[in-house]
Amino acid sequence: MKKLLASFIRLFEPKEREERFQSSDSIVTEGPARRTILQYLAGAMSGVFAFLYIPKLFVKDLLNQHSTGKVQLPKWGMVIDLDKCTTCGGCVVSCRAENNVPIAGADQADKARMIFWMDILVEQEGEYPDIKMRGMPTPCNHCENAPCVKVCPVGATYISEEGIVAQIWARCIGCRYCTTACPYTRRYFNWEAPQWSEEYKNQLNPDVATRPKGVVEKCTFCHHRIRKIREQAKIEGQALTDENFRYLPACAQACPAKAITFGDLNNPNSEVSRLKKSPRAFHLQEELGTNPKVTYLRSAKWKE
């Protein structure tokens, strides 16, 4: 080892190197030192520039992902009628079952580590007996101007061509910037490896990937259901109408009050487009300009 190092060091022996060059050409007497420094510097700087410019190359790829086809793609949206909703929690459990959302357990629940893709948000005001309270189911709002998408450093979350704010589990590095940036706190992090007992593993839905520890997960508008129904229809040559999608996501399907409606916002005749025009319609935190694709209906507006 020592000898090896010795010989390696010899390469940089200044005297010898200078002698070497002196013997061949006396003009470059002081060249080597300068050149080496310059070379090293140039190398370092080019490294720096590579660092700066490599990501830029990916912008091209990024733009390609949003291919602009001629066919108008649907833009999925959801309308939740709070006058109908009784906050029974059917949507919450249905979502859990459909999307393999892990159970936190008593200890982790105490530490506020629970994951709900669909959660019920509660607000309360007033004193007995003039109390007012409201519960509202809140999935990911799938904002058109999503604060979470802008901040993801690796493109693990993006807005799909059909308007779904998607999370690609396999790319997520778990920096939790998106969870922090989301003004609705509708993104969840796998603090620990999700645990299923051997028996509960039977229940896992094969259409939805399970998430490993350390990644962020969120509502997907049950896009696997959309894909499934669409493939089925395409192969069987059927046309899909708004009816097929109206109660498609697991939460909408489960809702006993049918308070959740789903559909294509680009289709002016769809139920969601119709409901969205209702005077009762409002969005959560409209003033932030996130432009959510989840619309709420309520006769008296929810105080924010």
Binding site: N64, Q65, S67, S160, E161, E162, A166, W169, T220
Partner: peptide
Amino acid sequence: HKQYNVSNDCLRCHK
């Protein structure tokens, strides 16, 4: 997918 003009949207193939 690109060659056959099929969408390369992540959600097309990721679940």
